[in-house]
Amino acid sequence: MSEHRPHFPGETGRRVRSLRELPQQMPPRRDLWPQIETRLGARGRGARVRWAGWQVRLAAAVGLLALGAALTAGVWITHGSVADDRLPPDLGVVSEISPQIGPVDARARAALLRSLGERLQSLPPSSRQKVLADLKVIEQSMQDIQAALGRDPGNALLREMLLETYQDEQHLIATVQEAGVWTQEAGSGKGSI
């Protein structure tokens, strides 16, 4: 087995016995900063030349505003009220699922919750609101159970409930995904023949 030894510039092969024996400063073999500074300066000057005109800046601002407005309108037309459709910001707080569920499932849960946002688009707005409310109910239940588990870690009833509540959430997400398929089937008439 070969022994791994640190290698320092200027090392003479002498064994270091104390930190004090190490050099206080260690200059690089090549000083790259002067070249970098030169290049940065050249790029900055070029940029100033190209963007000097106020007309250009005004045009850019107008363009950005127009692009922003178009994007906003596009999102609004495509998805309705964005605020209504987003998952509540406090949802997904229980990202660190207890060891009773396991880290792999916690990752799967996070992925499922991320995919839920777009799936919700396929629901009628009233259903969407109810599903979001129910997700919060589940989330709150998980937090309650985890808080109880914090006080009584060995409680088998709580562990079982946490796992089942997690499964409820998976079931809900699966139902929303299925509802998207139902919507397609009902709209396009694609039956199960």
Partner: peptide, 19 residues
């Protein structure tokens, strides 16, 4: 039943449909 979403405005995508 077919024809859902084929609105008169020629914008019968599901997004506008929901909107």
């Amino acid at each position: 039943i077919t024809g859902y979403g084929n609105g008169r405005f020629g914008l019968g995508g599901l997004g506008l449909f929901n909107f």
